[in-house]
Design a protein around this nucleic acid. Sequence first.
DNA 1: GAACCCATGTAACTAGTTACATGATTCA
DNA 2: TGAATCATGTAACTAGTTACATGGGTTC
Lengths: 319, 319
Amino acid sequence: MSLNHVILGLLNQESMTGYEIKKIIQNTPFMHWSGNNNQIYKAFVELLDKGFVTKEVQHHEGSPSKNIYTITNSGINELKDWLISDTEEPAFKKQILIKLAFACQLKRSALEKMLASYLDTVKMQAILAEKELDKCYFAEKEPSNKAKFLSLIRENILSFYSYELEWIRKVQDYISELPDDESISTESKVLKENNEVKSDMNYKVIENQGKKYIHFTSKDPLIQSEHDAYNIITLCFENDANAVLLEGNSLSDDFVNLKTGIAGTVLQKLGNYNVKAAVILKDNHNFTPRFKEMALEHSKGNSFRVFTNMNEAVSWLLA
Amino acid sequence: MSLNHVILGLLNQESMTGYEIKKIIQNTPFMHWSGNNNQIYKAFVELLDKGFVTKEVQHHEGSPSKNIYTITNSGINELKDWLISDTEEPAFKKQILIKLAFACQLKRSALEKMLASYLDTVKMQAILAEKELDKCYFAEKEPSNKAKFLSLIRENILSFYSYELEWIRKVQDYISELPDDESISTESKVLKENNEVKSDMNYKVIENQGKKYIHFTSKDPLIQSEHDAYNIITLCFENDANAVLLEGNSLSDDFVNLKTGIAGTVLQKLGNYNVKAAVILKDNHNFTPRFKEMALEHSKGNSFRVFTNMNEAVSWLLA
DNA sequence: GAACCCATGTAACTAGTTACATGATTCA
DNA sequence: TGAATCATGTAACTAGTTACATGGGTTC
């Protein structure tokens, strides 16, 4: 487990608390640990035990005393030994490849759905990774050796995703040439259209009190499928916003109809990516009681809420 | 954990024993499990419990009764549900990126060594993956949908490695332009030369009784560094051989001198990649007693042995 | 007062690995 | 005789995750 050495590497740059280390690991996309407490605090026990770090307890008048860890000379040696030791082989985990190996079982339409949704996920992952890299601990403003190394790392990671995207499109091309299965052939065409970035998504990016939100003004039904959730999230990421304002009539009938399950999935996706959504309901709108129930249910959380008043909605979004 | 679903996927193609499943998982490079018994036999307990598979015990007169597992209808449904469910995001683990982030700590020569050895490892991994893909369970001879899917999978995997190799060379180029550190500047030049494929490695591929071995005939000292081990292993892979015959004078002084540690590392590398090595010692050769001791030590294993007689060496290699 | 960040820590769990035990068969 | 492959299984372990507990400070 190289986590211990990563901690030494970070401490070698400056002394830190466990919490800071944890945050760095969580926000660095090439460190493949979740950065959970258990592992990190356990690691410190071991590092102290072996004499690679020392701990200085800083009591504050309040009370949550900080433990500031500092690397020792023997820790620095250990770090250097690790750095020059054999490097682990690169490895990947791609469930999609396993699924594809079994994919002859599936109908063409199912395959198309699978690929389309995978494409969405990877796109978003790529955007997220890029953002994280830009603001991660190792990012440097001024050009230097360190900055150059980070840019090499960045190139490696972004290529991983961009190759995956390219490959997905290749697979999609192949699948689209397969003979139709028994399902209605138009279904797949709809999917293909959906797959293109919606150019008719009317929206405005609004900045208010230093915070941004995206106001969707389209008169056409906006959220028709899971894919639209990805479109919205991607737009948010691209515009550095994490909140959206939807008008009641933007929601498609399928969305409002709970049986399709779209509402649930979409709200979950938005929540996953930490995007707040406010819906403005004009009084004349009458949704089904079950939808209203669900809206109320979600209102308990902090990521989706229904409003009748625009100002309320905006101030909640910016909160 | 999708291992259970992978097992269902395999059983959906044909009924099998646990051992067969295990072998398939171990030999399929895009299945990222080690394929250890514990996990697989535990998985069957769960699959039986949930009614996704049935077990037929085949008693043989001898005794090691086989358990042949067959997928049930409910298992097929479970498999299909999994196939159309959201696909996990692709993920990678690259220790090299973490090390590089801390790399400003290192001297240029150390960085060069690190990259050169990583390049070797990845090269070999790529060759191995390609071989495994060719002979894996999913490989089909005749063109078909299944074959096309496998070729898409293959493309994805091989690109992963070939991009990594390309990237390593880019990093090496950058590092080579860094100012020299205090270490002797010629050292790095030696490394660069080593890095090129040795064109003066004289060898013959000899096939005997359907088995192949590679006979190194070079009069120049052959094994000077760890890197040469990789060269030898790569040659073996490329020629589908897993045994090499070395002449005593092929071994460099550094190799024979145990203090450098090269002999140990090289023999370990050869063993790791399952390459048998026989050394022919002419009587007039006098190695240090310590080398002879180590040779004897290794002779207990089945991957390295010293001979004085050519015929003995060859018959051991082919055994 | 609710929710969220800082900061430390633990308990319980899942996933995955190595190594061992057994026994028969086959091949040199 | 010894080693390799087939075949099943278990024990002990490492790595890593989620979820919880505590408690202060800040912000709406």
